[in-house]
């Protein structure tokens, strides 16, 4: 495949390659400049690190083999858990601070996504954290986006454009489906099936300053998804629908926050 693609213009490719190196040099120079500038202006800013911890009823979530039992008594294993949080907003004594472009994809399988570091937060005391579970409608109509919003991350619907806000799949022997699979792809940004939800959490008093980063643990309990749900009758939700709204209402309260190094049982 590669040779077939590379054939048309070898000489051109060399030219591109050279300019590519130059750009790299140029970019690293810019980076140094940015770092220098940052260190000058950083005195009033701090860092917040959010450690995300997927759990099932308080216990660390293990994907694959471990069997869990839902509130209604359905046994299950969990295959995949992904969820967007966005529009993070810290509230405190000096008012609130909206973190720009803060859409973040949590993927239980990818530990890198379970640490979310936020720089440049104005120093001060904060005691509240608000965010969207999922993405707002503007994001959903904004075309091709990058980073955590890149459509290659398995959270974008092609057949009916828009993001999947949260995804949970697994197996349960009560599901009379192929391989006993259940699939919840919760999305939809248009009325009447708007599935984005707001979380508003009380924080233990935190002091953001330029000396030490503050670490918070954000527990996300996927057991909440199954509240009042029988997997026998509800096991395949992959479109914006009434059922999707019901699940979204269920998981609205799945997040809990604590100051770090006390959970992780």
């Amino acid at each position: 495949m590669t040779t077939q693609l590379d054939n048309p213009c070898q000489d051109l490719s060399l030219f591109f390659y050279k300019s590519y190196i130059m750009k790299r040099i140029y970019r690293s120079f810019l980076l140094c400049l940015c770092i220098a500038l940052f260190s000058v202006t950083a005195f009033a800013k701090g860092v917040l690190v959010i450690k995300i911890q997927p759990v099932f009823r308080g216990k660390t979530l293990i994907l694959g083999d471990k069997t869990y039992v839902s509130e209604k008594g359905d046994p299950m294993t969990i295959e995949e858990f992904k969820c967007y949080i966005s529009a993070l907003n810290l509230t405190g004594s000096k008012g609130s601070y909206l973190i720009k472009n803060s859409a973040h994809l949590i993927n239980a399988e990818d530990s890198a996504t379970l640490t979310y570091k936020i720089d440049n937060i104005p120093s001060g005391h904060y005691n509240g954290l608000k965010f969207n579970i999922g993405l707002d409608s503007l994001t959903n109509v904004s075309g091709a986006l990058g980073g955590d919003l890149d459509p290659t991350l398995g959270m974008y619907w092609a057949w009916n454009t828009g993001y999947i806000n949260a995804k949970l799949t697994g197996h349960s022997n009560v599901c009379q489906t192929l391989h006993n699979k259940f699939e919840f792809h919760i999305g939809g940004y248009m009325e009447p099936y708007v599935t984005v939800r707001k979380a508003s959490l009380q924080l233990p008093d935190i002091d953001i300053n330029d000396k030490t980063p503050v670490t918070l643990t954000l527990q996300v309990d996927v057991a909440t998804w199954f509240n009042d749900i029988h997997l026998f009758s509800m096991n395949n939700i992959v479109t914006p629908s009434k059922e999707a709204l019901r699940i979204a209402d269920n998981y609205m309260n799945m997040f809990q926050v604590s100051k770090s190094d006390e959970s992780g049982k």
């Binding site: 490719s13 591109f16 590519y20 970019r27």
Partner: peptide, 22 residues
């Protein structure tokens, strides 16, 4: 995996790693 494409994308987007968005 195509050198030509990586260079063309780098040229257009300033990033030689092709992404879904680009």
């Amino acid at each position: 995996s195509s050198r030509i494409y990586r260079h063309m994308f780098d040229d257009v987007f300033g990033d030689s790693v092709v992404t879904g968005q680009h």
